[in-house]
Design a protein around this nucleic acid. Structure first.
Lengths: 154, 154
DNA sequence: TGATATTGCTCAGTATGCTGACTATCAGTA
DNA sequence: TACTGATAGTCAGCATACTGAGCAATATCA
């Protein structure tokens, strides 16, 4: 009888569950209200000004139907803006606002703290190993989900 | 500038995303309609007949408010039964049905296949290492989520 | 025993994440 | 240029996850 602890799928779920909880706790302690998903989206918008939603989704491996709601909430919080593209009238160009920039800057220590806490049971080397193995497994399975990671086409 | 790939939290999300996609695909190929969460709950009910919902939630680290809907769906599919406890009238005792037992038996190869696919980018040793490191990180962070893993009190 | 705390469960509300369908638009080609 | 297929975005619907509140029942202890 296989135990849950022998199932990588179950370990994946647990690890993610803890990651989200730690992130939210650290960010709230810092006085902010931002989810891991919203943070990743905002940071990626900042790094790629004017990108469209599909490109953003590809860069962080979100489903295109999920990103709609995430951006809705970033816009509602005044952290990002969505405007029609002049080149392609189907597309929306995304920009970070000054408020979004400020928030990102101030929230960074909490985000980094969350990453440390998530690995607190491991030595530095073990943490590196875990990340390396996760990256490798993820790369091999990238195309198995509906929302694979995609590079910038540039 | 820290890349997403250097954030264990982001890797956790991607790994879990792929794990769910692989599980659902394998199970559907086998002709069944069961989510990873439903599978874990059903298998745990089978292994611990008559357990109550809070205990079940603790054994698989689900939130108590999440388990309600999961069990609803297992009951609706005819795979499990929920009955009032005679010892404690607040509690519900959970049982697997014959249909549930049959489903579990027939679905096992697909579930095991999903676990293999999830690690297909890794060697056997790397897969073992990944699981060991995940277990260690999870153990250290167990109490950081609202739904920690709990042992049977017996 | 009676007041208080705790526990098992449910519900409303919010945020992912997905499937599948739909509209508007664009791109390529006959 | 008219047709065809692909693409960007949205929406409805379903299944986790969680917060916080509430109800009923049990446990505890003065």
């Amino acid at each position: 009888m296989k135990d849950n602890n022998d199932m990588p799928g179950h370990l994946a779920r647990r690890f993610q569950q803890i990651a989200v909880a730690v992130f939210l706790a650290e960010v709230e302690d810092a006085g902010f209200d931002l989810t891991p998903v919203q943070y990743a989206a905002l940071a990626t918008i900042k790094a790629n000004p004017g990108l469209d939603q599909v490109t953003l989704a590809g860069l962080i491996a979100y489903d295109r139907t999920t990103i709609t709601g995430v951006i809705d909430r970033l816009v509602q919080k005044g952290l990002a803006e969505r405007r029609a593209s002049s080149r392609d009238r189907r597309a929306r160009e995304l920009e970070i606002t000054d408020e979004g920039r400020r928030t990102l800057r101030k929230i960074t220590p909490a985000v980094e703290s969350a990453q440390r806490i998530l690995l607190r049971g491991l030595s530095a080397k073990e943490g590196e190993d875990l990340m390396r193995l996760l990256r490798k497994a993820i790369a091999a399975g990238n195309d198995l989900s509906r929302a694979p990671l995609r590079d910038l086409q540039a």
